[in-house]
Nucleic acid binder design. Structure first.
Lengths: 218, 218, 218, 218
DNA sequence: GATGAATGAGCTTTCATTCAT
DNA sequence: TATGAATGAAAGCTCATTCAT
């Protein structure tokens, strides 16, 4: 064991570091293979091979393929989840477009979007994890929309639950579309979303900054 | 096996008939198993067993599990596809709500919705088939929306392609939701859809039947 | 392929028959391999190979190696068990020698003797099965010896339980020796056994036929 | 690791000492594991772990699992071997009972008895080692019995070889019974053994101390 | 045609052994 | 020397597919 207490020694922990690297290499390898060939069609051996590791090493880091999958998912749950919608002042369409673009750009880096539908169907436990996260996210969106509605910014006669569901659905689909590499005109999508949520005159006021929230009882 | 050549035997082509029955039994069996356990986890033996035929018989009717899947999909592509949107006169929300309900009721009977995401990911050829159908469907919707836009019924400043995509996406998601057994308030969904497509005053006119299409250049 | 519907055809049931043959071939193959290399060192693949059958076929007939073992054991439990001792009139040494020889000859054909010690140690369930059979056998021997003792034929001051255990132990060891191919002088063994059981004057009377059992209260 | 070169440190060869300790720890660990789970089911990793050393260290001390086994066996061969029978004057039954009890008590502490049958079957070389020891032991017993026979103490008409074999067999079985934790009435066993060896009147004389060995030609 | 036993490639997983640290 | 992560051969078992009946 090298002396780790010398002044100026490079403060790395070679073993743990290498371990961690291998673990990550395996996860990366698995991810790419899952995306290429699907979860079922990917074998532990292949995962190990692409990570430049022996088959047995796979089982030092993960009890099995499923466990690796769970790690992989948990790592990236936030990326998978549709973004958090929070309305600030300003042009809502531009605002949203910007956020959509940023979110899906990040998403694309972790190509999991492509993977999820398959996984969710076959694995009840995983589905539960993701569903929980989704429900949590939807609650937040719902609360936000409720607040907006109370402020009189939204269509008054539409059920907020339905609206939330529609938004999330579109965001998820957008995510899939994105992961398929199709290009997306975020400006246009933002326009549709806004039109779905807000009556035209509200949008106009928001854009002009003349929106008077004081009129709204809270 | 009883003697089938007795006088008085049913005079129609019993062989072909029985063949067809077996083929269908196999498809039905496969469908239910695919839905229950997923495509990968269903074995040829099981499919045969549930269809009350021998394993080998499976291979007389289908060259392989995948081929059966393709048959199954093709049979039911229309059910899987989001419905065809055609706007007639009258209250558009009621109209749409009715059609949605009918469509998803039909869909639910062929529970394939649940199956598709898994399949599409793994099987490029299948994905291509489905994508073709989807594109075809989208084209029709697109044309219809273009006509509506030209008539001045729709938001003038929204890209029709984006809109079409949003509609289809929502319809697909609705289909999934449906197949998960969650109940759906079609009335509300119809409202959201309509609001996404049409400006409020147009909706009002449609409902009142005072819409004057003649103003629209064609 | 021979026509099996000819008059005079041998009334066999080809399928079941072949199945049975294969099952037996597998059992035989397993037995010989277990004896050659031990249970743990024998693989399902090898068993199948020696039975001229594919690996998968093994699993059609047995859920796994252990199950095959159980079948094998149950088939041959009687052969494994030490013989049943019943004393009739006449020269007890000759009588016993004859029975020993016959028994161990039979035993040798099913070479399981060699196999048992290993198996019993590792497999609690199997050990239980064999132990049951052993206990049953010992009870019978015990009863027999008790009867002999009541008749005054045996050493009066020796515990019958201990004696039974010694006899059975020697028989089992003899079985092992036998299975190892060492030759055995049954005459001499019979002499030892008899001397262990009966006082010398009783043996003498038995040989002379002058034994008077009427003196014995029952 | 603490500095081991401090003044006042124990001046003996600490390295060799520690080595020896490790070796022994490994042997002890292996022994207990072999007894608990059997030789085949014990892994090198487990042995190392229970001995509080790294897996690799195992291979510094033993070329392989089997070699460790051999060491272990050789260490304890005497305990495993049935005891040495030497007849002195006095009550032979009491004498024998005492020795049996002592011997099997010692045996029980090194629980190897349980292990042997499994090992002997699989491992020809080990079997040979043990067999050698056994043969050697039997020779000694044989010589002793021959002496006794020449002195006229034993049944004159029984083959000494057979007798030796029977004695050894019973001793081995007793050992197994012992290792199974069943209780044993050594008094009774001693009685059976003596009766197997000596005619009743000799036993009587031995007990009474009236045995006149001088009558015997040597 | 129909049957289902048979096949064997291929997957998951274990573990004796090696070797860089 | 000691370590324990890494290795990869080999075991158990499954299942799509074939083929003799």
């Amino acid at each position: 064991m090298p002396n780790e207490n010398l002044v100026g020694d490079f403060p790395t922990f070679p073993k743990q570091q290498r371990s961690k690297l291998k673990r990550e290499a395996l996860i990366e390898s698995a991810k790419s293979l899952f995306i290429e060939k699907g979860y079922e069609h990917t074998t532990a051996k292949e995962i190990a091979a692409r990570a430049h590791v022996a088959t047995g090493t796979f089982y030092r880091y993960f009890s099995d393929k499923r466990q690796l999958l769970m790690s992989l998912i948990e790592n990236q749950l936030e990326d998978i989840m549709p973004l958090d919608l929070e309305w600030k002042s300003g042009d809502p369409e531009k605002l949203l477009a910007g956020r959509l673009e940023m979110h899906y750009h990040k998403m694309n880096e972790s190509n999991l979007g492509k993977l999820m539908p398959e996984l969710l169907i076959r694995d009840a436990e995983l589905a539960a994890v993701v569903k929980d996260a989704k429900v949590h996210m939807q609650k937040k969106v719902l609360q936000h929309l409720e607040k907006l509605q109370r402020k009189g910014l939204m269509w008054p006669d539409i059920d907020i639950g339905t609206l939330t569901w529609c938004l999330q659905s579109l965001l998820e689909k957008l995510q899939v579309r994105n992961s398929e590499g199709l290009d997306v005109d975020y400006q246009q999508f933002a326009k549709v979303f806004c039109r779905t949520l807000f009556p035209p005159e509200i949008i106009k006021q928001m854009k002009e900054g003349t929106l008077n929230e004081r009129n709204v009882t809270r």
